[in-house]
Design a protein around this nucleic acid. Sequence first.
DNA 1: CGCCAGGTTGATTTCGCTCAAGCAATGTGG
DNA 2: CCACATTGCTTGAGCGAAATCAACCTGGCG
Lengths: 244, 244
Amino acid sequence: MARQCGGALGVSCLSCQLRQHSEWRVLNEEETRFLSRNRKSREYRAGESIFAMGEPSHGLYCMVSGTAAIRKGDAEGNTALLRVLYPGDTLGYRGVLLDEKRRYGAEALGPSRICFIDKPVFRALLARNPALSQQFLHRIAKDMDEAHDHLVRNATLSNRDKFVHLLHALMNRGGSTATDGSRFMELPLSRRDLASMIGTRHETLSRIIGRLEEDGVARFSGRTVHVRKPHALLQVMQRPALLD
Amino acid sequence: MARQCGGALGVSCLSCQLRQHSEWRVLNEEETRFLSRNRKSREYRAGESIFAMGEPSHGLYCMVSGTAAIRKGDAEGNTALLRVLYPGDTLGYRGVLLDEKRRYGAEALGPSRICFIDKPVFRALLARNPALSQQFLHRIAKDMDEAHDHLVRNATLSNRDKFVHLLHALMNRGGSTATDGSRFMELPLSRRDLASMIGTRHETLSRIIGRLEEDGVARFSGRTVHVRKPHALLQVMQRPALLD
DNA sequence: CGCCAGGTTGATTTCGCTCAAGCAATGTGG
DNA sequence: CCACATTGCTTGAGCGAAATCAACCTGGCG
């Protein structure tokens, strides 16, 4: 899943497996070479900030390995995680497209490698290849839909169901399947952050996790989680009886 | 506030006051004339659907008078209001830009006049005037921010504070100021819909409203609402003592 | 070893949901 | 014009869920 982009030294975007599934796939070889020459690859430690709210937007970022998250806070100092980012995801494109300051902060969740693309470089590529603009338009529209879905879920589901849904989403990106069909993964987030994503307190999440274990939906141990019947996850919501 | 676009017959976009504050302001006179010739203006009754989830996107809409809302539902049939639209707002541009089916439904809240712009017409204008694309890019980014803010509020605020915030936002668009500095307005939404916007039940909202009246923050009577100290609305959250 | 951050657990109170009844405004058919 | 249903809203009682405050555990880490 978390493939390294051209090896530990970040040799070239040309050999980056992730490119095929990212917005950059519409670039031709020459343009990719240009991108490769001008991007800067860098390691981040766990918890390290990538950019902060209110900063000017100097460029955009492309996840190579590891995971990162978008965190936004309100006036009273409360913060919530809005999104988890995986290898291949681009990050911070909005501030660059609109020449605005950062509206949210981003931070590495675990040790990560992330490429940085300078604003002028990005602009040059956009000007040379109109398909790239279209890609980012699609991207922002998809993000929009995600945010709207998130809103509807938060408005209609119980905390338990919100968490099951979150678990399902995280599994789809970062999970692995065992030989018996069950799935497992390392959660990229602390309990606190998981709780903030569904809008509850970490104590409450702790109890929700307890209930899910009682119901046999999943087993938790530290940050590792096993799900017995991953395909039944979303059907299980509010109806644990469905788990035979 | 709700100015008619060129009179009851919708004479021309050229004389539409709202145009100056909408995405269309970047069009020159000739382009505006083209838009004017090709748009269709229509009346909607209260509650009438403008478009529904899953429909193909034939074009976009421009609010002339009245109010409308975006409603989205999840798999279980629960629905929530995501946004209220006022004169001058464009609506449904995303499906058109991306050639996708509608991801949500829109409906008139009260009697409204709304212009319809066909997809080919919109495309032609986008091709002729690149500034229009930029306008819509800004627009989608702004919508994105709004959705993110909404998410953070829903995750961190109490139901009471969420409602106060919603009240504040509605006041800013549709309210009028009285001689004594207090503000009042006709709520465009039913209690049910207000409740769905903050993710709670209508009974609960009813009690929240009762508490706001007790605290002297606002007075409600049917759909009319008076706010004594509008500037203090957001400071009042969770601290009713601040109201002298 | 003490300290700390992250996590769990418990006790208590507050809050919100559910179900149910009541009420006012509106509409409808006789 | 009245009986009657309908719709939107409010109110109440009971209950379950979640917030809060606090204690305690655990695994690093100086």
